[in-house]
Design a protein around this nucleic acid. Structure first.
Lengths: 200, 200
DNA sequence: GAATACATGTAATGCGTTACATGATTTA
DNA sequence: TAAATCATGTAACGCATTACATGTATTC
């Protein structure tokens, strides 16, 4: 019953992430690796060493195809595009039931074991993390401002491409805000200084 | 310079999680696996197939030792205890600089690609997730109430063992609250029904 | 008679990171 | 001349899940 040209191989989440990026526009493996350092990279990452083999798998499964671009001044490159089958697989996956993966957070683990540590040293750790997450939050908020100025009202229109970015961004901002707040509360409770300067 | 009895092997995060549980009280591998389904399991998980080899590694590194308990009605078991070296390694790790691991969240990835999906189907997915995270939040809040009744004011005293549980729990509650809120906002924006009953 | 609790392991497989490998062009 | 950018791959290794493997005692 299976078409030998389109074997029903189960695609990994990374595969869908790549298909999703390619659904916006055609890209090379190198471009995809660059995208994975920003935008999508905030909630799904992969190195080029994982991306190239994954693209080969997607191509073998008939979900993408590539066009070889010959270049003289630079190395040749392969521009990948989503096939009809790839687009269908992606759309089907998007609303399929989600398998919950357990959370792994090393900082929360440390909080759970904090009774073993020196309170002031621990406070410094959590104060540092508070600053880190607050900085990340500010970074996301700057991206939001940029999105607002370039897309205007389309940003708030569900169904539009910018709205999808906006939705993901909103989660990022909320996540970092809540994380920073918790770190601040804990550092405070442990009696830590408010800023690094106070320790000098 | 290295003591051959205590080789400086780098312990994994799981190793520290196990050391942390054993610092509270001596436990068997089976007990540790059970603990990993609740308490710590909310922010760090491992199956028994990963725990048994890890305990062997910790023992080879001199961080834990075990006592074999012979039982007639049940299988024999090994009760593990933290050594002085293990306790020292754990305390040192607790406040050591933390290497930030990138976040991987499949639901946020799907949100980023939502423009490809049918809005109403997508709304159902996010409404389901909202319910899931709200339920998880309620579960954590119930544990908090239980902790409050059993430990009383000690729960709010930084440095106490219950306070560490309380701190981790607070993060869990905040995380789920913010996550559920975001899911609800997105489902609403996509024009989804408020409850499953509205769909019938 | 079936499932669950107790108890401890190993093997196969998949996902992800780091390191290895090559090589031209452009910028500091 | 050192580095970053462009461009594509492979190999080794570690962490995590699923499945394989065994066996008794209790509970439904």
């Amino acid at each position: 019953m299976n078409d030998p040209m389109v074997p029903s191989t189960s695609t990994s989440t990374l595969g869908y992430a790549l298909l999703g990026l390619l659904a916006r526009r055609d890209l090379s493996g190198y471009d995809l690796a660059a995208q994975m350092k920003r935008s999508v990279g905030y909630f799904w990452q992969a190195r080029h060493s994982q991306i190239y083999p994954e693209l080969a798998k997607l191509e073998a499964a008939g979900l993408v195809r590539h066009l070889l671009i010959h270049q003289t001044d630079r190395p040749d490159k392969k521009i990948y595009a989503v096939t009809d089958a790839g687009r269908a697989a992606l759309i089907s996956w998007l609303t399929s039931p989600i398998a919950e993966a357990g959370t792994r957070d090393e900082l929360v683990l440390r909080a759970y074991l904090i009774w073993l540590a020196d309170p002031l040293q621990a406070a410094t750790l959590f104060r540092d993390q508070q600053r880190h997450h607050a900085a990340r939050q500010a970074e996301y908020e700057a991206i939001l401002v940029a999105l607002e100025t370039t897309h205007g009202p389309a940003l708030r229109r569900p169904g539009s491409i910018p709205f999808a970015s906006y939705a993901a961004l909103r989660r990022g901002i909320g996540y970092e805000r809540e994380y920073a707040e918790w770190c601040g509360w804990l550092a405070e409770a442990l009696g830590g200084a408010t800023s690094a300067e106070d320790l000098e």
